[in-house]
């Protein structure tokens, strides 16, 4: 293994006087799932947006090791290249599937969009790939021509995942992918995600407030509070032996069922 896939150095972002995240540094390696946990308002999503090039950080840098063009500074790329990266080598799964999907067009078109964006012009092949991905995310292929607004929440989320993975990305950013879903649907989605991540050797940056999700999916964990990383380490280590008082509080606040 040569260079880390994604590496952040001293990333900080403030909105006016309010610090959203401050001095965040980490390396993400190929095939690794990094979790970012913390309470609401701790800067998780802001950090994720900075990493994914959707927000320009005030300080620090984010470097990404591309497939063929060596390592690039995500925020110094031209907008054209950054957008190309975002729709080929990256994926972004929103908490609200409606933000990540085109609700007005069929599921097949949603999945096929990335393919068409990079020049696929054969309807039959695009449709074939879309159907294949529907199966892989466990949606009935009969629903291929239905619009996502006829889908349930869990199906929409799976469709969003398929739409992102169709271009074979190496790195996927996920913002609370299981948020807002009921527990049994969450469990199935987590199973699916775990299978896909392992099968495709994906690297993932996963933002969640749910320690259960973090435990199941992530290899490493960063705990954020008030915009700074208070603790990071292997997931099991952080969750089983939390060192920082805030992490201890977080772990202790899981309701025993």
């Amino acid at each position: 293994m040569s260079a880390p896939l994604l590496s952040a150095r001293g990333v900080g972002k403030r909105f006016g006087g309010r610090v959203a995240c401050h001095d965040v540094s980490f390396d993400l390696w190929r095939g690794e799932v990094l979790g970012i946990v913390g309470e609401s308002g701790s800067g998780k999503t802001t950090l994720l947006n900075c990493l994914a090039g959707r927000l320009l950080p005030d300080s620090g840098s984010v470097t990404y090791e591309t497939k063929s063009a060596g390592s690039v500074d995500v925020h110094r790329l031209s907008e054209a290249r950054r957008r190309l990266l975002a729709r080929t080598e990256w994926g972004f799964v929103n908490q609200d599937a409606r933000e990540g999907l085109r609700m007005g067009v069929s599921a097949g078109a949603n999945i096929g969009e990335r393919l068409m964006a990079v020049g696929a012009r054969h309807y039959g092949e695009i449709r074939g790939q879309a159907a294949d991905w529907m199966t892989r995310v466990e949606i009935d292929v009969e629903r291929l021509d239905d619009r996502p607004n006829t889908y349930s929440g869990g199906m929409r989320q799976r469709l969003q995942i398929a739409r992102n993975l169709v271009s074979n990305p190496r790195l996927v950013f996920m913002d609370e992918p299981t948020g807002g879903l009921d527990v049994s649907v969450q469990a199935r989605l987590l199973d699916l995600l775990r299978g896909l991540v392992e099968g495709l050797h994906l690297s993932v940056v996963l933002v969640t407030h749910d320690l259960g999700v973090a435990r199941l999916l992530t290899h490493r964990l960063m705990v954020m509070q008030g915009g700074t990383v208070v603790e990071q380490g292997l997931t099991d280590q952080v969750l089983d032996d939390p060192q920082h008082p805030y992490t201890q509080m977080l772990v202790a606040s899981i309701l025993p069922v």
């Binding site: 957008r83 067009v105 069929s106 096929g112 969009e113 068409m116 964006a117 012009r121 449709r127 291929l144």
Partner: peptide, 16 residues
């Protein structure tokens, strides 16, 4: 940026 995937999406949708 010559990003015209979405136009093709509308044609795909029409065929579907």
């Amino acid at each position: 940026l010559s990003e015209y995937g979405v136009m093709q999406v509308s044609l795909y949708e029409s065929i579907a």
